[in-house]
Nucleic acid binder design. Sequence first.
DNA 1: ACTAATTTGTTTGGCTAGCAGACGAACTAA
DNA 2: TTAGTTCGTCTGCTAGCCAAACAAATTAGT
Lengths: 371, 371
Amino acid sequence: MRDNAPCSRADIAASTGLNKATVSSLVADLIDRRLVRETGLTENRVGRPATMLVLDGSPYASIGLEVNVDYLTAVAVDLSGERLLSWRRAFPGATATPAQAVAAVAALTRRVVNRMTKDQRQVLGVAVAVPGLIGTDGTVRVAPNLGWHEVDLAGDLAKALRDPGFPIQVENDANLAVLAEHRFGPLGGTPNLVYLTGEVGVGAGVILDGRLRRGGQGFSGEIGHIQIDPQGPRCRCGRTGCLEAVAGIGVLVSTTDPAEVESEIDEVVRRAKAGDAATLDQLATVGRDLGRGIAIAANLLDPDAVILGGYYVPLAPWLLPAAADQARALSIAADFGGCEIVASTLGYGAAALGGAARVLDSVDSGRLPSP
Amino acid sequence: MRDNAPCSRADIAASTGLNKATVSSLVADLIDRRLVRETGLTENRVGRPATMLVLDGSPYASIGLEVNVDYLTAVAVDLSGERLLSWRRAFPGATATPAQAVAAVAALTRRVVNRMTKDQRQVLGVAVAVPGLIGTDGTVRVAPNLGWHEVDLAGDLAKALRDPGFPIQVENDANLAVLAEHRFGPLGGTPNLVYLTGEVGVGAGVILDGRLRRGGQGFSGEIGHIQIDPQGPRCRCGRTGCLEAVAGIGVLVSTTDPAEVESEIDEVVRRAKAGDAATLDQLATVGRDLGRGIAIAANLLDPDAVILGGYYVPLAPWLLPAAADQARALSIAADFGGCEIVASTLGYGAAALGGAARVLDSVDSGRLPSP
DNA sequence: ACTAATTTGTTTGGCTAGCAGACGAACTAA
DNA sequence: TTAGTTCGTCTGCTAGCCAAACAAATTAGT
């Protein structure tokens, strides 16, 4: 129904192969739960007009949050995918303690939840994106840019919200961003996707066969520290030639203050638009190195598409051609295995949006709210 | 039952949560299909003795084949995992035409099938391992070492066997090898595995969340041509610094004749055992470069284990320490994410055995032979 | 205007898978 | 010999789904 709305019960029966009677009873249950709503009838067709069905957006909301080095983001989405709210708020993530972060996130969450309940919506769940290694149990093992170590964010947040009555999840930012692309992006539904976060760090989110793949410990997608060039520059992690040391956003900016990165990137864009040779050169070099990293992921995973996010998006006009050339040259499959490289269109809120997507995923996979 | 045999109906009910009556009826159906057999009773316990159940090995067989540059391998396995047959036969794969290969594989298959029918076994299926890129439809897109291009091996084989009455599948050798490890190896059942074939080429088979991941086009696992060092040596593929150019078996042998590789590797082992400094040095270098490749895969996929196969196995005593050191140094997760690096114990027949495993997988996932 | 054709969605009755609980069978422990 | 335990089957029951019939609401054609 999400893909083909509005559609009739008969449409669903035809496309799923289920019996009309079965569809009717299932739809009745979904209407009881206020997940689905009848809209008008079809007209101007032979035969009895069909009563059309749509996902009912109004009674529920799904909330996604993102903690980052310089801001908190909150997104709320309804069941039909409509964006209800998108807030961004400055936050000194790089210097705040985990306890301060929990308090700030809890405060923001409370405000979003209040807004939702004022709108008569029930909150289905909250998922928080964190840039770092997240264990399979949802605790933050380590988030270098936030200076966090073994923080049970989900538990602390639940405590701060005093048993909020909806589940709270924590997940890696790249993992959530790729979920956002999979549900809301122009390549939505594509079964094999890789998403690259373009921040000072570079992380990957990997969807294979339609599901997020988190690896054994939940640490998959750590592409930022694969070694692109053993003779490359030293990375802040202490190793040499890491992808993020040669193709991270940090290569293009001089500041170490995360709050200033955005304006510096704007400046790079300005110089590139003006045709500044040194800038164009530097962007081409970063693009090629990024292409090397993409080629590695593509050779290993054979995705249908690689999506560039974060600050890679405004720089895409200059990065993409070089990256695509390099990736194609280094790919073993003919024609790059039909894999596309594209810039994300979801903007900076991708990870938070992915949090909301994750909550919706759990509804789609059967955890329905009771009637 | 495969994991806990022999076990009683009551055991199954207890461990699955199914009702005893349900288990009884399902078991009756499996016994009808001759997939399961009752063995003796338990004794010396309080209460009524249980009738124990085991997988019935005798009525069926699953066949795996491998086409390689210098040999064909055939393996037959019964339902309980017992090896029934393991044949290896010289075959000039590097020079034979696809048609000749089909004829040779068909002849070998016929002999295996005849043996199975003589033993009163029904063949459940055949899966053929091919070193190359295999499309999602099972056609061989390209197999460089065999000189193949767009060969519909499954179709041709079915034609040559004149509608054999069992399904024929074709799959990449590394993909099948990792299935063999997952079913028969000491790490069997581990949900996230990477297997590296150690031949002149290097390929990877990837299992994530318990299932083989083939990527969008079926081309996943092409780790052999990821660029380890942009300043590295030229690879036979024309690129520079590919993993197989720095850590493939070809680095350690001088011959280009695949038939002679095995004896040359034996010679390397002899020299290493004798403590020859140049050899040990070379092995350490290859081990380190292999470790770089492993680190890349581990950072991106976070597997529970990486398994080295092919000629890496006899060389493992010298390669593994260097590879593990390097991989640990380049891994972002603490303690290498708990990931083990081990040598395969399945021997050269791993890919063929994996073919048999694939057929058994399809039985386990519900394609049962009729009663 | 009226009938035939078409399409929708509900109703009816039936089938199957699985469940809970009762029960007989077969054993051990005291 | 009796009590207790465990196994596997048997007996009804329910939930989910199906096929087919059917009523409702429309268009197409004469």
